Amino acid sequence: NQASVVANTLIPINTALTLVMMRSEVVTPVGIPAEDIPRLVSMTVNRAVPLGTTLMPDMVKGYA
């Protein structure tokens, strides 16, 4: 099973992502692959992402 990116904290809308905000976890449904974490750093989220939420491609500006 592939690990996905999961919010390690509440990420407010329009926040630039940092490494400490994200962790990898095997979850269903599958979200952004964990190997993309380095690429996500400094990208911003377009909605509030609660703790434990899987990051989906449409949640990160410029990812999809």
Rank of each mutant, 00 (worst) to 15 (best):
N46A: 10
S24F: 07
V30Q: 13
V49D: 01
S4F: 02
I37C: 06
G62A: 10
V26Q: 11
A34W: 06
M56N: 08
V60T: 02
N46K: 09
S24T: 13
V27A: 09
V27M: 07
A34Q: 11
P38F: 12
V41W: 03
P50E: 12
V20Q: 15
P12C: 06
Q2R: 04
D36F: 08
V30H: 10
D36W: 05
L19F: 08
L10K: 12
I13H: 12
V45W: 00
T18V: 08
A64C: 13
L55G: 01
T28I: 09
V26D: 15
L10M: 14
L10Q: 12
R39G: 06
V49L: 12
T53K: 08
T53Q: 10
M43Y: 07
G31L: 02
T15N: 04
D58I: 12
R23E: 04
V49I: 15
I37W: 03
L55D: 01
V41N: 03
A7V: 08
V30W: 08
P33T: 10
M56I: 08
V41T: 11
M43V: 04
A3W: 05
T9A: 12
L17I: 13
N8K: 12
I32S: 01
A16R: 11
R39A: 09
V30G: 07
Q2L: 14
P57D: 07
R23C: 04
R47Y: 09
N46E: 15
A34T: 07
A64E: 09
L17K: 00
V26N: 07
R47Q: 14
T28S: 14
D36V: 07
D58L: 08
A34N: 07
G52S: 12
A7C: 04
G31V: 01
P29V: 06
M43D: 03
L10D: 11
G31W: 03
R23W: 03
T15K: 08
A16N: 07
A16V: 14
P12E: 09
G52Q: 03
V49E: 01
P57N: 08
T44I: 15
T54P: 07
Y63A: 05
T9H: 15
S42E: 08
T9C: 04
M56A: 08
T15Y: 08
V6M: 05
